[in-house]
Amino acid sequence: MDDSTPTLPVWAEGLHGKVALVTGAGKGLGRACALALSAAGAKVIGVARSSEDLAVLRSDASNEVVTWAMDVNTPDILEKIESLEQLDVLVNNAGTNQPQSFLDVTDDALDTMLTLNVRTAFVVAQRSARVMARRGSGSIIHMSSQMGHVGSPRRTVYCMTKHGIEGLTKAMAVELGPLGIRVNSVAPTFIDTPLTRPFFADESFREFVMDMIPLKRLGTLEEVAAAVVYLASPASAIVNGTSLKVDGGWTAH
């Protein structure tokens, strides 16, 4: 009698035995991605500044989650990443936005977004790729935005940074593909979270957003996390250098 374990189809293999690093894991999209990757069987390393948020993440996760209470803008995290023996997945999620009209963008807002959304994303991906290259495999997932594909009022700097991330995704995919490392992005539309709900109290803003989304609803955290799990998993083994738009059709206009 054959006692061998049956071979699972590629879409059902999950992420057992994989190590996934998620930045900005304390709240919102990062937290949702960390929980989803944990549920899929990965050993998750969650990074955030708030120890309290990370404690809640650990208690809510399906499996054990290792947490680093660190600021991704500091050199310490880069050294910690490079010291890892194994890293299979990076969800490069930490980012920020400060909506301002173009004529009124402050130097502080410009510098803050360029630093976190572009420079920090770059160096975190670089250090992670060095670890992956030693093992000859890996999946890097940049958290982009629909604003990485289109323009929008009061978001010139944010659009600039996310367009930069989309360019980085393509260039990394070309260069790192021969090393066995896939690089993709996920580009969400507006997501229904406690932080975004106050924006929709403005009826004109809500009308603008609903007019742009053919599905006539916001996305959910779980829908974005599902896209991340797909790109992290063997189910997307040939997907490289693309942007998975989770936008309800916004960018189809």
Rank of each mutant, 00 (worst) to 15 (best):
S4R: 15
T7Q: 13
T7V: 14
L8D: 01
P9M: 03
V10R: 13
W11Y: 15
A12W: 01
L15F: 04
H16R: 07
G17I: 04
G17L: 07
V19E: 00
A20H: 05
L21K: 11
A25W: 08
K27E: 13
G30H: 04
A34S: 05
L37V: 09
L37Q: 04
S38E: 01
S38A: 08
A39D: 01
A42L: 04
I45K: 00
A48Q: 11
S50E: 12
S50Y: 07
S51G: 13
L54W: 02
V56H: 15
R58V: 07
R58E: 15
D60C: 15
D60F: 08
S62Y: 00
N63F: 07
E64V: 00
V65G: 15
T67M: 11
W68S: 04
W68E: 00
T74F: 07
P75N: 10
K80W: 05
K80V: 03
E85K: 11
E85H: 12
E85W: 00
V91S: 01
N93V: 09
A94Y: 02
G95S: 05
T96A: 08
N97E: 08
Q98W: 09
Q100M: 14
Q100W: 03
S101R: 13
S101Y: 03
V105N: 11
T106E: 10
T106Q: 09
A109Y: 04
A109T: 02
L110V: 03
L116T: 12
N117G: 07
V118C: 15
R119V: 06
T120L: 13
A125Q: 12
Q126S: 14
R127G: 12
A129Q: 02
R130V: 01
V131N: 03
V131L: 01
R134S: 12
R134M: 07
R134G: 09
R135D: 04
R135K: 10
G136K: 01
S137W: 04
S137C: 13
S139G: 02
I140G: 12
M143W: 03
Q146W: 09
Q146R: 12
M147V: 06
G151D: 03
R155H: 14
V157R: 12
V157K: 06
Y158E: 11
Y158R: 08
T161V: 00
H163C: 05
G164V: 06
I165T: 09
E166D: 10
L168C: 09
M172N: 12
M172G: 09
A173M: 06
E175C: 03
L176F: 06
G180K: 03
G180I: 01
N184Q: 02
P188D: 11
F190P: 14
D192M: 07
T193A: 06
P194N: 10
T196H: 06
P198H: 05
P198S: 06
D202M: 08
F205M: 08
V209N: 04
M210Y: 08
D211G: 13
L215N: 05
G219K: 01
A226Y: 02
A227C: 10
A227T: 09
Y230T: 10
A232F: 08
I238P: 02
V239Q: 13
V239M: 11
N240C: 11
T242S: 14
T242Y: 07
S243I: 03
G248K: 02
G249T: 10
W250Y: 06
W250Q: 02
